[in-house]
Amino acid sequence: MKELAVLGSTGSIGTQTLDVVRTHPDLFHVSVLAANTNIERLLVQAEEFKPNAIVISNPLAGASFRKVYKGKAEVIIGEKGLREVCRRDDVDLVLVAVVGIAGLLPTLEAIDAGKELALANKETLVAGGSLVIEAARRKHLLIRPVDSEHSAIFQSLLGQDHKGIHKILLTASGGPFRGKTREELAHVTLGDALKHPTWNMGMKVTLDSATMFNKGLEVIEAHWLFGTDYDDIEVLVQPQSLIHSMVEFNDGSIIAQLGNPDMRLPIQFALTYPDRLPSPSGKFVDWRQIASIALEIPDYDTFRSLKLAYEAGKSGGDAATAFNASNEEAIRAFISGKISFLSIFDVVENTLNKWAVSPIRNYEDVLRADHKARESANQEIRRVSL
């Protein structure tokens, strides 16, 4: 029986993680549930899984939760609770699925405590990749990626010498606006952007997929996870979401991981590695229904997010931190109706054009860069606001 801490249990990845736990109740127990504000869903989860501890990082939501919760779990309020539970003796594996830079400190804490780590938070590696990878090396700890693309690369590299990598081929669905021109995207609404053709994800990830900032974040994430140069990471559009990513080796061989677009599959593999258990969905690819598999080159001009990601990654230091923070602010402004869809790209590009790169030596450097980039992005948002 493996004891799990699910950080971000009420979000898309968190709820699907609990689906996996339901499928294998004899293998997993949820020792810790952690959420930010969704106390209604958290109450339901707490009743079903009966954790030993519950974290609510938002103080107001935490106070409300404490008033209505009747269970026996220890209730911890505040973001510090996310770090504290990573060191508990009754936790074997920490799954980090909180949104944004809030995932960085718990990740570092879990690594320092020597816990098994399943990482579903892109921003942790984008904003503080050098800190996380160095910490994992010191502890000889393997980071198990949960993103479908990075799980695919991870699986394709099992038993392989990483020195033999020629290129990582990172696939993208293309999102709801694949093939659209800038002119066609000029009047995109929030509802339009949330209609992903193949994946069921949370709002932030779905919007990032629509802009392809999601793929830009994943390029940077792949660089840190697999130690691969940016010039050796190529993005390909695979609209059926069957090929989740590929690795091309120096001898010309390519190993790919394919499967249905179901996040429970990479989640389960991250929890059970190196073992493979029966599918949590019970569904398999029916190859008789698939006449061909399509691959396309991304439109780097319309979806400038990819160019910006490569530029930020190659710049090093805190440039990727600024890339992530300015995108988060731009997405927030789009959701609230302050800026147009295309202005998301403008906000990030203008923020990075003004950015003076500084080195990242510690967590404080990440916070400083994150705060500075958000201020700069909000200045741009005010300038281009509708």
Rank of each mutant, 00 (worst) to 15 (best):
I39L: 06
I39S: 05
E40Q: 14
L42I: 13
L43C: 06
V44E: 03
Q45N: 11
Q45F: 14
Q45H: 09
A46L: 12
E47G: 00
E48A: 12
E48D: 10
F49K: 11
F49A: 08
K50P: 05
P51E: 07
P51I: 07
P51K: 08
P51L: 09
N52I: 03
A53N: 03
I54H: 04
I54A: 02
V55G: 14
I56D: 13
S57Q: 14
N58E: 12
N58A: 06
G62C: 03
A63L: 08
F65D: 09
F65S: 13
F65N: 12
R66V: 09
K67D: 06
K67N: 04
K67H: 03
K67T: 04
V68H: 06
V68R: 12
Y69Q: 09
Y69M: 10
K70D: 00
K70G: 04
K70N: 00
K72D: 10
A73C: 11
A73W: 08
A73K: 08
E74K: 01
E74Y: 00
V75W: 01
I76F: 00
I76G: 00
G78W: 11
G78S: 13
K80Y: 13
L82Y: 00
L82A: 05
L82P: 04
E84C: 00
E84D: 02
E84H: 01
V85I: 08
R87W: 00
R88Y: 14
D89P: 01
V91T: 12
V91M: 07
D92T: 00
L93G: 13
L93C: 15
L93F: 09
V94P: 08
V94L: 11
V94G: 15
L95C: 14
V96A: 08
V96Q: 10
V96L: 09
V98S: 02
V99I: 14
